[in-house]
Design a protein around this nucleic acid. Structure first.
Ligand SMILES: [Mn+2]
Ligand SMILES: [Mn+2]
Ligand SMILES: [Zn+2]
Ligand SMILES: [Zn+2]
Lengths: 138, 138
DNA sequence: TATACTATTGAAAATGATTTTCAATAAAGG
DNA sequence: CCTTTATTGAAAATCATTTTCAATAGTATA
């Protein structure tokens, strides 16, 4: 998956490729940190000066709708986005610098079955997120 | 733990017990659903008419600071609060009616050790949340 | 390549949630 | 009681996000 692929996917779904969208897509695609709309705006404007913040919001909305990015929930706030990993993955966040890593291989089947049993809920989904310090920050 | 205990804990920490706070505390304490400030306001006003929305925000802030309540993150939004369980617990949320259940007994030690190994992160904390349908809704 | 159609744009205004300001009130301790 | 000072609600301010709108630019088609 490349930034060009993201643009292609947008086009395949009836959206147009524009200079503003290129700037946003390349900004978000290339970041190892979760970025807020305001941060995306600030960075993407270096690539495309005329960019408006409104367009950042609108483009992030479309990227999220295409599951190319996802919202990151943190103690400090829940407005930031990061490019989605592929398949079933979860996030590991550096509490210091905000760097994001993906991981997989969590096996919660036994747990969810037991909880379903105990509570009477039918469980559909789980959110799992780890917090810590990345190798540079620790 | 009772609502009176919450008020006591606030007082022990230098805060005063007022009619407005009683209304908010009893509202949040007695709810099996996560409530937004606006919802708390609506319900608590039945107990204390003169209540202001600002005071709801200010009281929730103090309850969260005392770890008596916690913010609930959901796909629909992250403004709601629920009374905290005791000890290390996680949430199970009904996607239909919003009912909240707590569970414990998740064992992520093996996973976090493996991920720490693989990524080089030092892992401090985890967020885990289950979503599904409660026994009434399924 | 030129043209037509219409999605997309940024600015400005509107909205919605939360926070700050402030003078009046009421809780708590003596 | 009295005094002190935290707390209150209303109003204003702030901040993030959304809507409106007329101008512009992408894309399909000829
Ligand atoms: Mn998983
Ligand atoms: Mn746990
Ligand atoms: Zn770091
Ligand atoms: Zn339910």
């Amino acid at each position: 998956m490349s930034a060009e692929n993201w643009l292609q996917q947008l086009q395949d779904n009836g959206y147009r490729i524009t200079a503003a969208r290129r700037a946003v897509v390349f900004t978000v695609f290339g970041s190892v940190h979760a970025l807020t709309p305001a941060q995306v705006y600030e960075i993407a404007r270096k690539k495309y000066r005329a960019l408006g913040l409104v367009t950042v919001y609108r483009t992030l909305e479309k990227l999220e709708e295409q599951h190319l990015i996802q919202r990151v929930h943190q103690p400090a706030g829940c407005q930031a986005f990061i490019s989605s990993g592929m398949g079933h993955q979860h996030l590991l966040l550096c509490e210091q610098c905000g760097k994001v890593a993906f991981f997989e291989g969590d096996d919660l089947d036994a747990l969810t079955t037991a909880i379903a049993q105990k509570t009477g809920y039918q469980i559909h989904e789980h959110w799992l997120q780890l917090f810590g310090l990345c190798s540079s920050c620790k």
